[in-house]
Amino acid sequence: MSGRGLLVFVLRRLVVLALLLIVISFVTFSLLYISPGNLIDILLGARPHTAATVRALTREYHLNKPFLVQYWLWARQAVQLRFGTSIQTSLSVTGEIGARLPLTMFLGIYSFVLTMVFGIGFGVISALRRGGIVDRGLVGAAMLGLSTPAFVAGVALLYVFAIKVRWFPAYGVGTGFLNEFWHLTLPAVALAVTTVAYVSRHTRAAMIGTLDQDYVVFARARGLSSRRVLFTYLLRNALIPVITISGVILSSLIVGVVLVEVAFSLPGLGSLLVTAATTKDIPVLQGVVLLFAVVIVVANLLADVIYMVVDPRIRVGERAT
C-alpha cells in the first residue's frame, strides 16, 4: 500500500472523525434537555430556589437563548476543554476529570498490558498444544473468563485476596508508582479477566487457521527452523485479527473500568461517571461522555491505520469480515 494511499485513507478517516465528534457533541449537549424534571431544579442541585439563584443560573447556562445558540456556546467552551462546573461539588468539570484521569489511565494501561500479554500468550500456547490438556484447560478458563463480568470478578477477588487471604490491599490507591501498582493489581486483574479470555480465543482461532495454511508447510519444507517459522510468519499473521477486535477490547476495558472502580471504590473516571449519573450531575456527565467518545473514536482510527500498515493485502474500501 503506497504512502499516498495511506495518507488519503487517514485524511478521509479524520474527516469522518470530525463529523462523528460533532454529532456526539450535539447528542451530549442535548442530554441536558432529555432529562425529565424541571431543568432549573436539576441545575440548582442543593442550592435554594430563589429569584437570585435562578437568575444566576439562567445567565450561566444561557437558558433564555435558542437551543442551537446554546449548543454553539457550549461547544465553543467544550473545544477549549471547559465544561462548566459540577452541580454536586461546584468544582470545574475539567478539574474533576483531570484529578481522576491519571488513575483511570494507569488502570486502563495496566489492564491492557495484562490483556495483551496473557491473551496472546494463552492463545498461542493453546493453539500449539491443540487438543491437549493444557489447551482444554485454557479453553475452559477462557469460557469462564468470558462469562465472568468485571464486577463479579472484582468482588470475588476483593473477598478472596484482600479480605480472606490479605495478599493485596483492599482499598485506596497508594502513593508512589510501585505502591499504586500494588494497589491496582486486583482491579486490573478483575478488568482483564474478560478481555484476556476474548483475546486468547481469537488468537487461538487465528493461530490455528494460520497453522493450516500452505505457506507454513512450505516454509517448513524449505528447511527453516520451527522457531523461525513460528515467530516470523505465524505470530505476525495471527496478530492481525487481534487488531481487528481491538475496538471491542477497548470498549470492553472502558465498561470494565467503570464496574471495577465502583467495586473497589477507586476515585477514577468510571466512578465519576456513575456518581454523575446517580446524582444527575449533567455537566460532569457531558464532560466524561465526550472524553470517552473521543478516546474510542481516536483509538479506532489508530487501530485501522495500524491494520492498514501491517497487512498489505487489505486495500482501502475492502473490508475483511
Binding site: A162, I163, P169, A170, Y171, G172, F264, S265, L266, P267, S271, T275
Partner: peptide
C-alpha cells in the same frame, strides 16, 4: 484525612489500622 468513596472501603481501612 483520607477520603473514601464508599463506606465499605473506609471500614476496611479502619480494620487495617490505616
Amino acid at each position: 484525612v483520607q477520603f473514601f468513596s464508599s463506606e465499605t472501603s473506609e471500614a476496611l481501612a479502619f480494620r487495617d489500622g490505616e
